[in-house]
Simulated scan of single mutants.
Amino acid sequence: MKKKSVERRYVLIGVCFLLPAVAAYLVFMAYPLCRTAYLSFSSWSGFGEVVLNGVKNYQDLFADKTFWSSLGNTLYFAVFSGIISVVLGVLTAWLILYMRKMEGQVFRTVLFAPNMIAPTITGLLFLFVFTEDIGLLNNILKAVGLEEWTTAWLANMNTVKPTVVIVQTWRQFGLTMILCFAGLQGISNELIESARLDGAGDGRIFTRILLPLIKPQIELATMFTLLNGLKIYDSVVSLTGGGPSRQTVVLPMWIIENAFTYSNFGYASAMCIAFIIVVLIFNIVLRTVFRGENYEY
Rank of each mutant, 00 (worst) to 15 (best):
S85T: 01
G82L: 08
R35N: 15
A30V: 10
C34P: 04
V50Q: 07
V79A: 03
S70K: 06
E49Q: 14
S69R: 15
Q59W: 14
L61N: 02
L88K: 00
F47M: 11
S42L: 05
L61H: 01
I83Q: 03
V55A: 14
V90Y: 09
L61C: 08
V90Q: 02
S85I: 02
S70C: 13
S43P: 00
E49C: 09
G48S: 02
V90I: 11
T66I: 15
F47N: 10
W44M: 01
F41T: 01
K56Y: 12
A30T: 06
F41P: 00
F77G: 08
S70W: 07
Q59S: 13
L33C: 11
N57K: 04
A37H: 01
K65P: 06
S70P: 12
Y58N: 04
A78W: 00
D64L: 10
L61I: 10
I84N: 03
S45M: 05
G89W: 07
V50C: 04
I84M: 12
L91I: 15
A30D: 09
L71D: 01
L33N: 07
F77T: 03
L88C: 11
Y76E: 09
Y31H: 09
S70V: 06
S42W: 00
N57A: 08
V55R: 05
V86Y: 03
V50P: 03
Q59H: 11
S42C: 10
G54V: 03
L88S: 01
W68R: 03
I84G: 05
S70F: 08
S81G: 10
L88W: 05
S40G: 03
L71Q: 01
D60L: 15
V51Q: 15
V86Q: 03
N53S: 10
K56R: 15
V55I: 14
S42Y: 02
N53H: 09
G54Y: 06
L61Y: 01
F62T: 09
G46R: 02
F77S: 07
L88N: 06
S43I: 01
T36R: 01
Y38M: 14
V87K: 00
A63I: 13
P32M: 11
W44Y: 06
L88F: 13
S85F: 07
S69C: 12
I83C: 05
S85D: 07
E49Y: 08
S85W: 04
N73R: 07
Q59L: 15
A78I: 00
A37S: 09
V87H: 03
F77M: 13
S43D: 13
T74E: 05
T66C: 12
F77W: 04
G89K: 04
G89M: 11
L39Y: 06
A30R: 10
V87S: 08
C34H: 04
K65V: 14
S81I: 07
A37D: 05
W68C: 08
V87E: 06
G89S: 08
N73P: 13
D64Q: 04
L88I: 09
V79F: 10
G72A: 11
V90F: 13
A30W: 10
S40L: 06
S69V: 13
D64K: 02
S85H: 04
E49R: 12
Y58P: 05
F41S: 00
K56M: 10
N73D: 10
S43G: 07
F67T: 01
I84L: 15
L39I: 02
W44H: 02
L91V: 12
F41Q: 04
L52M: 12
L52H: 08
L33D: 07
V87R: 03
T66W: 12
N73L: 13
F67A: 05
